[in-house]
Write a protein that binds this DNA or RNA. Structure first.
Length: 430
RNA sequence: GUGGGUAUAGUUCAGUGGCAGAACGCCAGACUGUGGCUCUGGAUGUCGUGGGUUCGACCCCCACUACCCACCCCA
């Protein structure tokens, strides 16, 4: 026999009953988004490779080594070959759609959310997959619509805290930072580079390398011996210009006022080039090394970088895979019960047809119903009913059909009653 | 891309250089209209793949593959 085909590395199947947990998170997100006036956008799963190169950044790990990219060969003389890429994140696609459909011309603030798979060709580990799922939201629009306001930053972060609460994740921490505008970051990068030149020889091998390639990454180092040196390096806050400083202060002021706990972490570094000003990350203790539950930030120059109008924005992406892991690590949250309310058991020859009518009618009345078949004895029906998780079992036999009175039994309590055909649904609802 | 760990029944896992195991689960019967208990019986399988050592390898050696964890990076 030929070798069976398996799911490719870094991909997986989400099976019942786990899929119920995924639906629970997705539903909670849609509910919260609705209340904050966010609306769903669905963008393509693959895009022109250039979209990600120009937004996420050519030099980032994501673009330089983690994308699934292929050449789409021309199929007619008139077609040109095009480099396509499975989306490694969704913000670029949303901003592309914003530009393409001239959403800025409406003058209205766009508040958009998405739910869907993303793809990065990384080595899989706990909480990290090659096909993974993100829920995200973006607020963007022309500055006249208020897109630049710190109120938007605070609103998004407040919404996330509410989402976490409603999903049932308790054990989280919020870290906040401002990376300033492009000029601020350039000056800070320069300052870091100079400061590191003197001390990097005393640091770990990774830091020595990062001091050259990407000084910001040094701040992320976890080697204990390096921490004192890192503490002595210049802080980003000292390099923010006045408008950026004020913006960040206002975000913090609002968050303080709504009573959200957070930590300013000047060492929090995010790996996408488009972030400006506010950046944030919610972390969770139950996730192993990949502790970031969700992350996001402001991207005031992204639209222009993609050839669009000025359209400041802020957004986030949360890792659905990691949300589910976090939920599973907090024992208080169980898998939602999706079992049927009733198991309809035909008893004896020729009862399948009668049972099918009853099951159809129950389902019409919004009762989740499982239907057996008449190859089973009564005992087998009970066993199948138990396995289905149904709370009730209904027997459909010759006696019942003749009398129009049905035996309805509560599988948990053992209580049994006789009910008329028309009353079955009512009994279940009561 | 680098490092470490693991690979035996549907699942969780024991195991020994000489017959392939347990628990749970599954199937059948006792028991063809009222179960959950019990009893009896049954099937669990390329011991990840390929090679080597050996009279003999699931076990020792080598290679490969897959999965897990970590680095890196991120959600």
């Amino acid at each position: 026999m030929a070798d069976p085909i398996k799911a490719v590395r870094g991909t997986r199947d989400i099976l019942p009953p786990d899929s119920a947990l995924w639906q629970h998170v997705e539903q909670a997100a849609r509910d919260v988004f609705q209340r904050y006036d966010f609306h769903e956008i669905r963008t393509p799963i693959f895009e022109d490779t250039q979209l990600f190169a120009r937004s996420v950044g050519e030099e980032t790990d994501i673009v330089s080594k983690e994308m699934f990219t292929w050449e789409d060969r021309p199929r007619a003389q008139s077609e040109k070959a095009q480099s396509l890429t499975l989306r490694p994140e969704n913000t670029a696609g949303v901003v592309r759609a914003y530009i393409e459909h001239k959403l800025g011309e409406t003058g209205k603030l766009q508040k958009l959310y998405y739910i869907g798979p993303q793809f990065r060709r990384e080595r899989p580990q706990k909480g990290r997959f090659r096909q993974f799922y993100q829920i995200g939201a973006e607020v963007l629009g022309p500055p006249s619509a208020g897109s630049e306001s710190p109120a938007r930053d605070a609103e998004i972060i407040t919404m996330l805290a509410q989402l976490l609460r409603e999903v049932g994740i308790r054990n989280w921490e919020l870290q906040l930072n401002s990376v300033g505008c492009a000029d601020d970051r350039a000056r800070y990068n320069q300052a870091l580079r100079e400061a590191l030149a003197g001390v990097k020889d005393k640091m770990c091998a990774d830091c020595r390398r990062r001091a050259e390639t990407n000084p910001l990454r040094v701040l992320d180092c976890k080697v204990p011996e390096d921490q004192r040196i890192i503490e002595s390096l210049p802080k980003i806050s000292a390099y923010l210009d006045e408008p950026c400083r004020e913006h960040f202060n206002e975000v913090r002021k609002i968050l303080n006022h709504v009573g959200l706990r957070y930590q300013v972490n000047e060492r929090m570094v995010r790996g996408l080039d488009y972030y400006t000003r506010t950046t944030f990350e919610f972390t969770h203790g139950g996730l192993g090394a990949q502790s970031a539950l969700l992350g996001g930030g402001r991207y005031d120059g992204l639209s222009e970088g993609l050839g669009g109008p000025k359209a400041p924005g802020i957004g986030f992406a949360l890792g659905l895979d990691r949300f589910v892991l976090a939920l599973q690590s907090e024992e208080t949250v169980g898998i939602p019960d999706q079992s049927p309310a009733i198991y309809v058991a035909p008893l004896g020859q020729g009862m399948n047809a009668e049972a099918a009518v009853i099951a159809r009618d129950l389902r019409k009345q919004q009762i989740a119903t499982e239907l057996g078949d008449d190859t089973f004895r009564a005992k087998k029906s009970f066993e199948a009913a138990e396995r289905s998780g149904a709370k009730f079992i209904l027997f459909v036999g010759e006696n019942e059909i003749a009398s129009e009175q049905f035996a309805l039994k509560n599988l948990k309590s053992g209580e049994q009653m006789t009910v008329a055909r028309a009353e079955i649904a009512n009994k279940l609802k009561s």
